[in-house]
Simulated scan of single mutants.
Amino acid sequence: MTRKAGMTPLTLELAGHRVHRLGLGAMRLPTEPTDARATSITLLRKAVDLGVTLVDTAHLYGWGANEELVAEALYPYPDGLLVATKLGVERRPAAADGAVYNGSEAFLRSQVDDALRRLRVERIDLMQLHRVDPAVPLADQVGVLRDLRAEGKIGHIGLSEVSATQLAEARATVEIASVQNRYNILDREYDPVVDACEAAGIAFLPWRPVVAGGADATAVIAALARELDVTATQLALAWLLRRSPVIVPIPGTASTAHLAENLAAARLELTDDQYELLNRAARADR
């Protein structure tokens, strides 16, 4: 794979850090049993060695166990590493999914304190609202995070799974540094949010960034991947990097081989024709 100088920028300012535009989502990393945990720790350290500067975790991932895993692997955190986490989901076994959204002030404050302890830091540089609680006004939820920022416990504030309207509403209360929505070449529901983020200079962190779609579109993607001698996953990540300069994919993996494969996608520069071919395939799929 080759790339041309001066093309797609591969770093972005986010939450006071200059981050590489391919991060790592830690959700898939097992924390138990002991041998699996050791493998997860090795992968996290390898990711940093390979140049990853953004690791994304959340309280929801193992109800705090994933945050503790990240800290065990990477603390003391190397200079330039941004560890982002998320809050706003409460474990409630009696609920249908075993969890509920909770945007109350008391709960959000307790989750920030718990995350500070688990991640072993005095300030969380990027704290993201994992889901908007429909029972609490959005302005109140981000208002709590704004207050926690003023208290020095949070550096920057992000959102997850929001519409363009909700993003605008939140921005009326506090500065928003990032949005993390489900998004990939064949899952384009949040195109308007990507465009809104780009216009405002807000980082967009797509989760589930790898292709999942119809057979016709994936056939086109597979054919181009073979032509370029890359994987379909690498092609999907390269498309995201080309889609907007504010996009920072956070693919997750528990395999060091897949980790290296994902990061290699940064070296793939799509031509205009290749980019439009993929767009046409995606539009036909939809």
Results as ranks from 00 to 15, higher is better:
Thr42Leu: 14
Leu43Asp: 05
Leu44Pro: 03
Arg45Leu: 13
Lys46Asp: 10
Lys46Gly: 07
Asp49Glu: 14
Gly51Ser: 13
Val52Asp: 13
Asp56Leu: 12
Leu60Cys: 10
Tyr61Lys: 00
Gly62His: 04
Ala65Ile: 00
Ala65Gly: 11
Glu67Tyr: 09
Glu67Ile: 00
Glu68Val: 06
Ala71Lys: 00
Ala73Leu: 00
Ala73Trp: 04
Ala73Met: 10
Tyr77Cys: 01
Asp79Arg: 15
Val83Phe: 12
Thr85Pro: 05
Leu87Asp: 04
Leu87Pro: 10
Leu87Ala: 15
Leu87Arg: 03
Gly88Arg: 03
Val89Ser: 05
Glu90Val: 00
Glu90Leu: 09
Ala96Leu: 15
Ala96Pro: 09
Asp97Lys: 11
Gly98Leu: 13
Gly98Ala: 03
Val100Ala: 09
Val100Asp: 05
Tyr101Ile: 00
Ser104Cys: 05
Glu105Ile: 06
Ala106Ile: 12
Phe107Lys: 08
Arg109Asp: 10
Arg109Pro: 07
Val112Ser: 11
Asp113Trp: 08
Asp114Cys: 12
Ala115Ile: 02
Arg117Trp: 04
Arg120Gly: 07
Arg120Met: 03
Val121Met: 13
Glu122Cys: 03
Arg123Tyr: 11
Asp125Arg: 10
Leu129Arg: 06
His130Gln: 09
Asp133Cys: 00
Ala135Thr: 10
Ala135Leu: 11
Val136Leu: 08
Val136Gln: 07
Asp140Val: 11
Gln141Ala: 04
Gly143Thr: 01
Val144Phe: 01
Leu145Arg: 11
Ala150Ser: 14
Glu151Gly: 04
Gly152Ala: 02
Lys153Arg: 14
Lys153Gly: 04
Ile154Leu: 07
Gly155Ala: 06
Gly155Met: 07
Ile157Tyr: 14
Gly158Tyr: 07
Gly158Ile: 08
Leu159His: 10
Leu159Phe: 11
Gln166Met: 02
Leu167Gly: 02
Leu167Asp: 13
Leu167His: 13
Leu167Ala: 08
Ala168Tyr: 06
Glu169Lys: 12
Glu169Gly: 08
Arg171Trp: 06
Val174Ser: 11
Val174Asp: 08
Val174Ala: 15
Glu175Leu: 05
Ser178Lys: 07
Gln180Val: 12
Gln180Leu: 09
Asn181Tyr: 13
Arg182Glu: 13
Arg182Thr: 12
Arg182Phe: 14
Tyr183Gly: 13
Tyr183Thr: 12
Tyr183Ala: 12
Ile185Lys: 14
